[in-house]
Amino acid sequence: MSIDAVETPRRLLSLPRPTALAAPLAGALRRAAPTVAWGLVLPAVALPGWYLAARSGVLPEQILPAPAYVWSTFVDMVRSGELASHAGISLLRVVEGFGLGMIIGLVAGAAMGLSRRVDDMLHPFFIALSQVPTLAWIPFLMLLVGIGEPLKILVIVKATLVPVVINTRAGIRNIPKGLLEVGDVLRFTTGQKLRLIVLPGTVPPVFTGIRYGLTHAWIALVSVELLASSEGLGYLLVWGRQMFWLDTVVVGMIVIGLIGYVSDRLLASVEARLQRWAPRHD
């Protein structure tokens, strides 16, 4: 085995080990309390410092606006529905692109994992595709399909596709030969083999790929919205920058971070559950 594609995403993101996440909720909360308390030390020092610096003019507002100002902008944008509308547009794009990319990725990855011939034909192609960052494809796609909605969806599909394919393929391939041989002995049909052996064993790595795909999809969305869009959270940053509204830019960044965090956590908890439920091969 030359590649540990299943392991890569976790290493990249350096996520906590699944076992830690699988801990019961109450225990997690109890353990979280001191973490939260310690985590509040920095803002407890930084926020008043920021406030004082902004107030006294040591920190010019064109470098960093006062926290209260950022907050009031946030409240304004929530009240006016502006923030919800931008976030909604971004989320819709991600859902569409990510959903499509995931389906194509699962099918292609499964085909590559199950059939040697398909794999020989498609795998080098996918490796080549993954070598060129999504960001680089954007101008190419802009020339090809213009700057409308299809561009955004295509970019997100591409971003989702690669990790899903690589992990699905590896997940299926990593199923121990012995198990399949047992299936042969028991005279399982192909359908039975898929349902009883392949599927349960591959769900966790495939899900890791999906989760990684979502992270990619989110970054791709922000990139494409920065480059060519008139709405959405990425555009909010561009708009804020051009109008010299640092408060808007900061609010946009926080919302992008929050959505990225929440969606990743959601998938992580599902992943942890799957990992526990899956049979162990080792």
Binding site: V36, G39, W218, I219, L226, R241, V250, I256
Partner: peptide, 20 residues
């Protein structure tokens, strides 16, 4: 905790602020 939080912000989203 703060490093992990900031890490969640898609990297490209830093570009406007860094430019400013």
């Amino acid at each position: 905790p703060w490093f992990n939080g900031l890490k969640q912000i898609a990297l490209v989203a830093w570009i406007p602020l860094i430019s400013m």
